[in-house]
Nucleic acid binder design. Structure first.
Length: 107
DNA sequence: GTCGTGACTAGCC
DNA sequence: CGGCTAGCCACGA
């Protein structure tokens, strides 16, 4: 059985849960999170979930970047996001994570 | 029930 | 290399 009531805002929760799993010093991409949720084409919804994330400091949403390495956006400003990532030991050049593959965390 | 929005991605010029 | 377009999903009004 599958109560549809469980399928309403679970997606967002799942996104936050996965984001919380990202260890310090590593990053992930929106597409990667979507893939982990069995919805590789929902990367758009993933971004929405993070944007509305009510667990701001609890969920390290700043560890989620774009597939092209760009830090993407941030509710408090991409600049702040870059600062946090840099503090974690991640190298960011020209607003991009380099080398991205070395910091990507596989679920 | 329908429409618009967004922290995205890949492709094309 | 840089900029633009179209397509995709979930959520709120």
């Amino acid at each position: 059985m599958m109560p549809k009531s469980l399928t309403n805002n679970l997606f967002s929760e799942a996104v936050w849960a996965l984001t919380k799993r990202i260890p310090r010093g590593k990053v992930s991409t929106y597409a990667q999170l979507a893939k982990a949720l069995k919805k590789p084409q929902a990367y758009r919804a993933v971004g929405n979930a993070l944007n509305k994330n009510p667990y701001a400091p609890l969920v390290p949403c700043h560890r989620v970047v774009r597939s092209d390495g760009n830090v993407g956006g941030f509710a408090s400003g991409s600049k702040k996001k870059i600062g946090l990532l840099t503090k974690e030991g991640i190298k960011i050049i020209n607003q991009k994570v380099m080398p991205l593959e070395k910091f990507i965390y596989h679920f």
